[in-house]
């Protein structure tokens, strides 16, 4: 720690470029944004706002002039582009100018001839090289893969998933590309990814979920880990609005919760 720096204070942040998510409250609790070039898992069960958060990250980035790429596995990118119009800050020029690009991974699979149900080691390498090629050619500095879970379904074996994650992490870090990986998890799975391997390799984990108070469902967000940053560990209530994702502290009212 630098002389005179206080733990948790601004001077205690290690140096390093930040990639602001553009979501003001999230950037505040991350100390300015994601560490540039990091791989971050956005985990949550269905309907918790994972895709919306990642889309906003890309749109805000494209607005700043950063080239942004959405690799879609589960949903057709045409449908995703339609959803963008719900953001008041979205401008169609971002897509037409090529600053915001959508690619369907099934199309990539097809082009690469990856037609096996379970990907072989060679096919996994092909996929990583294809992602690397897209990021390099399009000069991408923000990437989203939605979802990592669907990709890992085709890799299946834990040791191969570990290998895939390590290589992907290395390739994207070398390209200084900040990446959000969407991870679909069950309500009470106790982990943040399909096999548990993924969360150990990534630099950060953001957890989105639902919690209850007196029967009411509340949508919450929590930063579980974020290497290279002294982030907040508190839980926040989130609301997805046309002006973007808004966050407020989750009120506890003196309640103590077990770990």
């Amino acid at each position: 720690m630098a002389d005179g720096a206080l733990p948790g204070g601004p001077a205690s942040e290690p140096p390093g470029e930040r990639c602001p998510s553009g979501i003001e409250a999230l950037d505040n609790i991350l100390g300015g944004g994601f560490p540039r070039g990091h791989l971050v898992l956005v985990a949550g069960s269905v309907g918790t706002g994972k895709t919306t958060l990642t889309l906003e990250f890309l749109v805000r980035g494209a607005e700043r002039g950063e080239r942004s790429l959405f690799l879609s596995v589960t949903e057709a990118s045409s449908k995703l582009r339609q959803n963008l119009s719900t953001f008041e800050f979205f401008r169609p020029e971002l897509v037409s100018s090529g600053r915001l690009v959508f690619v369907d991974i099934p199309v990539v699979y097809e082009k690469l001839g990856l037609d096996h149900e379970e990907l072989t080691l060679e096919e996994i390498d092909l996929l990583i090289r294809a992602i690397q090629g897209l990021v390099t050619e399009l000069k991408i500095s923000r990437l989203v893969i939605d979802s990592l879970t669907s990709v890992c379904y085709r890799i299946r074996r834990e040791e191969r998933i570990r290998d895939f994650m390590l290589k992907l992490s290395q390739v994207l870090a070398d390209l200084n590309c900040t990446t959000l990986l969407v991870s679909e998890i069950g309500q009470a799975s106790g982990r943040f990814s399909l096999h548990g391997v993924e969360e150990a390799i990534v630099d950060g984990v953001i957890l989105l979920g639902n919690t209850r108070r007196q029967g009411d469902i509340i949508r919450v967000l929590q930063i579980i880990k974020m290497r290279g940053t002294s982030h907040s560990r508190a839980q926040y209530v989130v609301e997805l609005t046309p002006i973007g994702l808004l966050m407020a502290p989750h009120l506890k009212g003196g309640r103590q919760e077990g770990m």
Binding site: R213, Q214, D216, I218, V237, E239, T241, L246, M247, A248, P249, H250, L251
Partner: peptide, 8 residues
């Protein structure tokens, strides 16, 4: 009861 929603 949704106090956080009020804030938001």
């Amino acid at each position: 009861r949704m106090l956080e929603d009020m804030m938001l």
